[in-house]
Design a protein around this nucleic acid. Structure first.
Length: 281
DNA sequence: ACGAGAACCTGTTTGC
DNA sequence: TGCAAACAGGTTCTCG
């Protein structure tokens, strides 16, 4: 579920609660999520201060005072919810990890489907960890551009839709924002990835940046599971042009065409793709 | 090496 | 109404 904008929104929501705070209690309520928790997980976390919270692709990174990093992926249904521990809000079924800070705030990691996970990375080992080592550039960073994207796509024979989902090409996109970026760029999801070069790649890189920036500004997209750390919904779903809009008239052709097209859905590698056959080539 | 499909797990929606 | 199938924002493994 959560793609880059949702993870970034969660990160921003956690900053005022966790950054600079000491973790006085950590409750691990099951032995694993997608993967087993690291040995001595709780013992290593308790008493440490969260020095900084950053994000890489869809990973949340809690940099601890020891130099270790608590790495967290939200999978499809993971949430981080902030509570006041004095309010004694009852734990819910899928609250798997509860962090309590020195000033009485709780952060609960809730994940119904358990595709999410946490890992504890030793000091100095973050960049080379198996989670981060192979990731492509951050789409909102200054190392991502049309030429960089074009180079990553060169010689790829599969559809551009699948290439953009590949975290080695660009890191942080998921199904929603790939569909939206391809629409914005006017590129068919079925186009052979390697043919997205030059001006097309430039347009696509710009579209990726634009849709992610706008989605972050809207607090992400709430489809079913996602909420911000505060529990509020994101509202970028109201700005989707194609995702989830099968059979709606395309807002772009609708304006200046005699025969407006409807948004179509197709399945690529088992995943839904939404696009406008007239606007995207 | 690459790409498609399955697997992982639970919850919700859809269709008969 | 009831039950089963389909589907869901991600990643990783297997197989051809």
């Amino acid at each position: 579920m959560p793609e880059l904008p949702e993870v970034e929104t969660v990160r921003r929501g956690l900053l005022p609660v966790l950054e600079g705070r000491r973790l006085v209690q950590v409750d691990q309520r099951r032995p694993n999520l997608r993967f087993p928790f690291p040995a001595r997980f709780v013992a290593r976390l308790e008493g440490q201060r969260v020095a900084q919270i950053t994000r890489r692709a869809k990973y949340l990174l809690f940099h601890l005072s020891s130099g270790e990093t608590l790495l967290c992926h939200l999978g499809m249904s993971g949430r981080m919810l902030v509570q006041d521990s004095s309010a004694a809000v009852p734990l819910e079924k899928h609250d798997h990890v509860v962090l309590t800070t020195e000033d009485g705030k709780q952060v609960r990691f809730n994940d119904a489907r358990r595709f999410g996970y946490m890992d504890l990375i030793p000091a100095g080992a973050l960049a080379t960890s198996r989670h981060l080592a192979a990731l492509g550039p951050e789409p909102l960073g200054n190392r991502f551009s049309g030429p960089v994207l074009a180079a990553a796509l060169a010689n790829k024979k599969g559809p551009i839709k699948m290439a953009l989902l590949d975290q080695k090409v660009v890191a942080g996109l998921g199904n929603i924002y790939v569909c939206e970026a391809l629409f914005l760029a006017g590129i068919s999801p079925q186009r052979v990835a390697g043919t997205v070069q030059g001006r097309r790649a430039e347009r696509l890189a710009a579209a990726v940046r634009q849709v992610l920036t706008q989605a972050i500004a809207a607090g992400g997209s709430s489809l079913r599971d996602y909420v911000q750390a505060s529990g509020e919904l994101g509202y970028f779903q109201h700005q989707w042009k194609v995702y989830g809009r099968e059979n709606d008239f395309c807002g772009t052709c609708h304006q200046d065409s005699e025969k407006p097209q409807k948004i179509k859905r197709l399945v690529q590698s088992g995943r839904s793709t939404f696009y406008c056959p007239a606007c995207q080539r």
